[in-house]
Structure formats: structure tokens, C-alpha cells
């Protein structure tokens, strides 16, 4: 499924890199620890997190993630958005907590295990 379909299905707001929503998403990873994501997330996965710090962009680029979902209605810092825009990393926001947005992604068929 493409990122733009997910955004539409789950009614999320796009905060950066709207030009890159045609990307195909292969699965999901949920974590708030950058080291964990660095070690375990897979290419083309969608990352669900509470973190809003600009370091999330660097991790997303490095791991070639499809995008980042920020949960609990939290807004990314301006530096994070600027960096994400520049690097072409889509950042999406949702009011839902991690458990629920992940539950819905799971219902759309995404898995967390390779």
C-alpha cells in the first residue's frame, strides 16, 4: 500500500515532504528509542513514535524509512520539519496514541515482523 492511501485511510495530517507520498510501505515499526530504531527498523517501514526531535529525520534517512508518524497530537519541532522537508522525509501526525494507530495500521495489513 502507498503512503498516500494510508494517510487518507487513517485521516492523518502531512507536515512535511508531501511530494514523497507515492512511496510503497512494507511494514511498521513502533519505538521511541532512536537506538532501537537504528538497530531494528527495516527499509520502507513506517515509523510510529512520540519523538519530535530533529534526530528522528536523520534516523529515518539512514534507515530509508517510508515516513514517520508522530502520535498523541504532538507537533514536530520547527527544526525537525525544516530538516524533514529538505531530506524528503514525510512526517505525519495523528491525535491517536501509538497503540491505536498501530492497531489500525495492523488492520490495513501492515506487520511489524519481516
Amino acid at each position: 500500500m502507498k503512503l498516500e492511501e494510508i494517510v487518507h485511510e487513517l485521516k492523518m495530517d502531512v507536515r512535511s515532504a508531501g511530494r514523497n507520498l507515492a512511496r510503497e510501505v512494507r511494514g511498521g515499526y513502533a519505538s521511541d528509542l532512536l537506538s532501537d530504531v537504528m538497530a531494528n527498523a527495516e527499509k520502507d517501514y513506517l515509523w510510529v513514535t512520540l519523538q519530535i526531535h530533529q534526530n528522528i529525520v536523520a534516523v529515518a534517512v539512514l534507515k530509508e524509512l517510508a515516513g514517520v508518524i508522530i502520535v498523541n497530537g504532538r507537533e514536530p519541532e520547527p527544526e525537525t520539519l525544516a530538516k524533514a522537508e529538505k531530506e524528503g522525509v514525510p512526517i505525519l501526525v495523528t491525535q491517536l496514541p501509538t497503540f491505536e494507530i498501530v492497531g489500525r495500521l495492523h488492520q490495513l495489513g501492515f506487520r511489524g515482523t519481516a
Binding site: S31, F99, V102, G103, L105, H106, Q107, R111
Partner: peptide, 13 residues
């Protein structure tokens, strides 16, 4: 042994 994503997804389901 499941990652967070899979654990949340299965319980939600």
C-alpha cells in the same frame, strides 16, 4: 519476542 508494532497490532485486533 514480538516487536512493539506487532504486539500492539495483535492486541488491538
Amino acid at each position: 519476542h514480538l516487536p512493539m508494532f506487532e504486539a500492539c497490532g495483535r492486541l488491538y485486533k
